[in-house]
Amino acid sequence: MTYRYTVTATPIGAAVAVFGEDDRILALGTAEDPLWVVEGVARELRRELAASHDDIAGLGAQLTEYFGGRLQRFDVEIDWRLSPGFAGDALRAVRDISYGETASYGEIADRAGRPRAARAVGTACRFTPLTLVVPVHRVIRSDGSLGEFGGREDVKRQLIELEGGSVR
């Protein structure tokens, strides 16, 4: 299988998306150095990734719409192979958090069928290869505080505020 990646500039850094031949997205990460994301995903897949300048699955246009406040849910098919087991279950539950809303790690654990696994939800959110299309920024601590977002709490706050949500 050939894996392709594309890079799109966003207000929170370069968004690097990785797609399989079927145009299903395997990874979407943001970083100041896009090659960091590419190399990490290539290691996970144990394959090299080919650069693409196409707007695969219209994701670049969707990112523009999202950051412009005009898109509430990404319309992409996800390939969950890099999020196996409970991590995948938790991230599927995260994907169901509505635009402008938040849920606690414990609430997501409950929705994913393991009510006592709030810490495992945190781990799934921290290490997910899929940000934005799986809105892990909408998952907060039970006390209402933000928690982490790849070490960038300011970005988590920015995304929640973009969506019209309130944060402490």
Rank of each mutant, 00 (worst) to 15 (best):
T2V: 11
Y3G: 10
Y3W: 13
T8S: 04
T10K: 01
T10D: 07
I12E: 12
G13M: 06
A14E: 07
A15L: 03
V16R: 02
V16I: 07
V18K: 03
V18I: 11
G20N: 15
G20R: 15
G20E: 15
D22T: 11
D23H: 08
I25F: 01
I25A: 08
L26G: 02
A27R: 06
D33F: 14
D33L: 14
E39V: 15
E39M: 14
G40K: 15
V41K: 12
E44Q: 13
R46S: 10
R47T: 14
E48C: 06
L49Q: 09
L49P: 14
L49T: 11
A51F: 12
A51C: 07
A51G: 06
A57E: 11
A57T: 07
A61W: 02
A61T: 14
Q62L: 06
Q62E: 12
E65N: 05
E65L: 10
Y66M: 07
G68F: 01
L71M: 05
F74Q: 07
D75S: 13
D75T: 12
V76W: 06
I78Q: 00
S83F: 00
A87W: 00
A93T: 06
V94H: 02
Y99V: 04
Y99C: 04
G100V: 06
E101D: 10
S104R: 06
E107S: 10
A109N: 03
P115K: 01
A117L: 00
A117Q: 02
R119T: 13
V121Y: 04
G122F: 02
T123Q: 05
A124Q: 02
C125A: 13
R126N: 09
F127Y: 07
T128V: 02
P129V: 06
T131K: 05
V133N: 02
V134H: 08
P135I: 00
V136H: 00
V136E: 00
H137D: 08
H137P: 00
H137W: 09
H137C: 03
V139Y: 06
R141M: 12
G144A: 15
G147V: 15
G147C: 09
F149V: 10
G151E: 12
R152Q: 15
D154T: 09
R157C: 15
